[in-house]
Design a protein around this nucleic acid. Sequence first.
DNA 1: TCGATCCTTCGACGGTCGTCGAAGCGTGCC
DNA 2: GGCACGCTTCGACGACCGTCGAAGGATCGA
Lengths: 239, 239
Amino acid sequence: MRAPYDSDIAPVAALLADRTRASMLTALLDGRPLSAGELARTAGVSAATASSHLAKLLDGDLVTVVRQGRHRYYRLKGAEVAAVIEAISRISPDVEVRSLRQSRQARALQEARTCYDHLAGRAGSALFEAMLSRDLLEAVDTSYDDPANSAYEVTDKGERQLESIGVDVGAVRRARRRFAGHCLDWTERRPHLNGALGAALTARMIEDGWFERGSTRRALFVTEKGRGRLADVFGCVLG
Amino acid sequence: MRAPYDSDIAPVAALLADRTRASMLTALLDGRPLSAGELARTAGVSAATASSHLAKLLDGDLVTVVRQGRHRYYRLKGAEVAAVIEAISRISPDVEVRSLRQSRQARALQEARTCYDHLAGRAGSALFEAMLSRDLLEAVDTSYDDPANSAYEVTDKGERQLESIGVDVGAVRRARRRFAGHCLDWTERRPHLNGALGAALTARMIEDGWFERGSTRRALFVTEKGRGRLADVFGCVLG
DNA sequence: TCGATCCTTCGACGGTCGTCGAAGCGTGCC
DNA sequence: GGCACGCTTCGACGACCGTCGAAGGATCGA
């Protein structure tokens, strides 16, 4: 075991000590890989500046990168990095809120949001766990550490349940896309469902009024109907 | 509840981003209040420099200070601050070790060390907990949040046990000094026994060969005998 | 009252770092 | 092949920050 005596925390802290880098890192907290350009826009700096910062974060082992065509997608390096950000958040003053709306939206983003085209946030994690524990879904590939390779199948019971709310599982299966896997959300520290199934289920729930879209891109609000249906159909009770 | 989205971690991180300040903070991790001068020597800077850093740490709410005569004693502000330091330590590279000896000593300091004149470190916490759970010691004042006001009494059973290993509890009681309280160690996140009783017990254990003093001031090593006696007498088993 | 000790404030120096525009490199699209 | 796009590198500017010595304030002991 290693004690704090053994390590020099200053270099890592220095990486977090800049507003631009800090906002990039917090943007990565929900596990979604973001491109250098997206991170630059999020932080409000030029591409050149962003690139310099990302090089430092890479060098300091706080993020990883994968190249995909012209894009470079960055992610937090691991749960320990997320833990640091969260620990510091706990003793940091609230950010300047320009409007009450902004803080309400931040809170809403925690509750439910989209991750690309599927449900994330607390609701996403809760639903995913409920589906697993009720045997509506089962893991096929158990390489849990690499979300990119995760794979799930719908059980017979799950298929009946999904069809009952209007999800055409057969059609989802025929989609030219990964059927079902999971994303890991660093803030929730819990996974949520993605892939064609995650997208179809999410689309259906929004269509049926379980969730409503907020004013910012990824925000979702659980409706009263949604709260009830989630509990009834999936045994998923939101805090 | 507050999400990381809401706070700006950069200012706090900036406070940790300097080697001098970082070493001051880690020096405070074991809960012992240290004076500005001691912190300056620990960090290897002038008094002027240390003063400037401590002002910043105070302003950033990472430490608190109490004046005592000409001295100013600093402490970490709370467990959340300690948690941040430890979280960053976990992803920080080991400090340059000039010798193997140095790293062995750091490890040893974790296991057992003195805090002023009484036992601290893992052994100190474990012994304290064992004494409480075996009803050798009981809390008198339960204001757990303020260690300075904590107070304990020895039970009859405890007194017999202590006398059996050669601690003169009567003499300890007559000492012009607080009888027994606890210190909070941020690294252990657990308290250990201090006061006249803590000092007398520690002195007796060292005298009787349960512990041996290391080469640096506060280092203690548990001997084989000590390991056995701690288990036999106090039911205290060290990991 | 005087000197010693502990600590802070002040001022100045030097180094580090964040920022951007311009230019260069690689990739994908038509 | 040529253009558009995403990203990185380079160079330069400016600001911030850690450092110390010297001087000043506060406290204690004699």
